Computed example of a mutant assay.
Amino acid sequence: MTAVVEQPPAQPKVKAGGGERGLIDLVLRFREAGILGALVVLVAVTTVINPRFLSAQGVEDIFLNASILALLAVGQTLVVVTRNIDLSVGSVVGLVAFVVGDFVSGTQHGVLVAVALGVAIGAACGLVNGLLVSFCGVPALVVTLGTLYVIQGLNHYIAHGEQISAAEVPGAILSLGNGDLLGIPYLPLISVAVMLAVGYYLRSYSSGREFYAIGSSPEAARLAGIPIRRRVLTAYLAAGVLAGLAGTLWLARFGTVVADPARGWELDVVAAVVVGGVAIVGGVGTVYGAALGALLITTIGSVLVVLKINPFWQEAIVGLLLLLAISADRLVALRLARVLRKRNVRHG
């Protein structure tokens, strides 16, 4: 008598349809092209008004200042595509910059020691956020807002109102923030390398695409057997690591550090990500768009300085860009849903 072995039911797969994926890719390319176009127009108009804006030093300053923000935006993208957010990255940068600066002051510690310490601190902060959000189920907004204030308080306690001067920081570390390779500063090279590596991972590996699946439909991702908690924890851990690296680069770039030097940067990071086409509701966006968003926001700040406009307007413009980007995402989402619904009815 032959035994009949019952096969387990196949697990559903999370995969966007070809038409839906194509529409989303088209929208993303349009958004990124729009940011690039806005950058070109902004630079062209400013150069006409003040030709010195495009001087070699001016361009270098823009890319140097954008590098750290772009690095944070890449880490934030990993978190946002999973339908979460990290508001503590600015505080992590400040904590790392001061602690690492205090540790290396008056010593001959090299770049590797500084980077390792900064990354370790950032990873610890990211791990706490990730565990509370993924395994404890606490809303990301509550967790990261809480850790933002905890880290700020810890930073001020450690600093005791003191500051670190560039004269105390080893020259090897300062050269990382101000040196170059074949005429190209190290900071943009580091940011571009990280951006390309993370972008390639998200695009080419199944585990990378799972971040988008979680953001698109957590329930479908759960049914497909995707380890949601582990992926969300990984996203926060990566964001913390990049924030730690950014804090070390902040020290290398500026040398002089006070307590909490990056206060308010968490909003700039979120703005860069959303303006760059990463949907705040998750599941859509690229690290390339986020980096372009960081470059646009940094360029706006430089333009206002060159044109001698009140710095207040930078915050107002960033806020306006954020509102426009979120509104555009909502309109695009509704449009995509309408198009896909009509397509399903037609082929149903």
Score class of each variant (00 low, 15 high):
47 T>Q: 05
241 V>A: 08
156 H>P: 00
28 L>H: 04
192 V>F: 04
120 A>Y: 07
95 L>R: 09
31 R>Y: 03
190 I>L: 07
78 L>C: 08
282 G>F: 05
13 K>E: 10
110 G>L: 12
202 L>T: 03
313 W>E: 10
227 P>S: 02
252 A>I: 02
321 L>W: 03
64 L>Y: 03
36 L>G: 12
142 V>R: 08
44 A>L: 15
47 T>F: 04
149 Y>W: 10
168 E>T: 12
194 V>K: 02
107 T>I: 09
2 T>I: 07
212 Y>P: 05
343 R>T: 05
43 V>Q: 12
69 L>P: 00
186 Y>L: 12
29 R>S: 03
201 Y>F: 12
54 L>Q: 09
38 A>G: 15
263 R>H: 11
151 I>C: 07
140 A>H: 04
234 T>V: 05
83 R>T: 05
311 P>T: 14
148 L>K: 09
21 R>P: 00
33 A>G: 13
259 A>L: 11
133 V>I: 14
128 V>A: 11
111 V>W: 10
201 Y>I: 08
260 D>E: 14
251 L>I: 06
324 L>R: 03
222 R>Y: 13
149 Y>V: 15
158 I>D: 02
255 G>S: 11
335 R>I: 01
316 A>R: 04
142 V>L: 14
310 N>A: 11
299 T>S: 08
144 T>S: 11
256 T>H: 04
152 Q>R: 15
257 V>C: 06
76 Q>T: 06
242 L>M: 12
213 A>V: 04
98 F>G: 01
155 N>G: 14
348 G>F: 09
65 N>E: 12
192 V>L: 07
168 E>P: 00
182 L>W: 14
29 R>E: 00
123 A>V: 09
10 A>I: 10
76 Q>S: 11
27 V>A: 15
265 W>I: 03
256 T>A: 13
159 A>D: 07
78 L>Q: 04
216 S>G: 15
52 R>I: 11
196 L>C: 11
165 S>R: 14
84 N>M: 05
171 G>F: 10
47 T>K: 02
59 V>A: 05
62 I>Q: 02
81 V>Q: 00
150 V>Y: 01
268 D>Q: 15
235 A>S: 15
7 Q>I: 10
59 V>I: 13
273 V>M: 10
214 I>T: 10
101 G>C: 10
306 V>E: 14
25 D>Q: 12
274 V>N: 10
211 F>Q: 04
229 R>N: 08
271 A>P: 04
137 G>P: 00
136 C>H: 11
276 G>I: 13
36 L>T: 13
295 L>M: 02
325 A>K: 01
12 P>A: 12
71 L>T: 04
203 R>H: 11
71 L>Y: 03
217 S>E: 07
93 V>D: 08
239 A>R: 06
126 G>Q: 02
265 W>A: 05
186 Y>N: 13
19 G>Y: 13
261 P>Q: 10
131 L>V: 05
262 A>S: 15
310 N>E: 13
29 R>M: 03
235 A>H: 12
198 V>F: 06
305 V>P: 03
328 A>M: 14
297 I>W: 02
70 A>T: 01
308 K>E: 04
